[in-house]
């Protein structure tokens, strides 16, 4: 990937799709604006590809630890009141949400 990356264009349709994945409603103006901004940002950050040659391993954690585990011992839980303390809506000890579109996952 040492060749110059092709210029990236993020279209309004792309932003619409991404906003759907990220579940953020956006106005048509916001979408157009973001499309332009993201194109220039992605254009800038795409240069990571210049040095990301296949021989370089990826690093996901700054400090390499392994096997950080917890003993299977019960600890504190929140009370039902604490669980629901921030709920926008609740009923019968549970969170209430508006109708779910579509199917069970």
């Amino acid at each position: 990937m040492t060749d110059a990356p092709e210029p990236v264009v993020i279209t309004a349709a792309d932003v619409q799709h991404l906003a759907g994945l990220a579940r953020i409603a956006l106005s048509p103006e916001e979408i157009d604006h973001l499309a332009g901004e993201l194109t220039s940002i992605v254009d800038s950050v795409a240069r990571v590809r210049e040095v990301a040659t296949p021989d370089v391993p990826a690093t996901s954690h700054p400090v390499a630890l392994v096997n950080v585990l917890r003993p299977d011992v019960p600890g504190a839980v929140l009370t039902q009141e604490q669980v629901l303390s921030g709920a926008p809506d609740a009923s019968e000890g549970r969170f209430r949400v508006p109708a779910i579109l579509g199917e069970e996952q």
Partner: peptide, 19 residues
């Protein structure tokens, strides 16, 4: 992170992190 772009962006960025 989206399909088709992960390697080029997030993946490459994690490699830069190694460098």
């Amino acid at each position: 992170l989206s399909a088709g772009y992960y390697d080029a962006y997030y993946g490459s960025a994690q490699q830069v992190r190694t460098l």
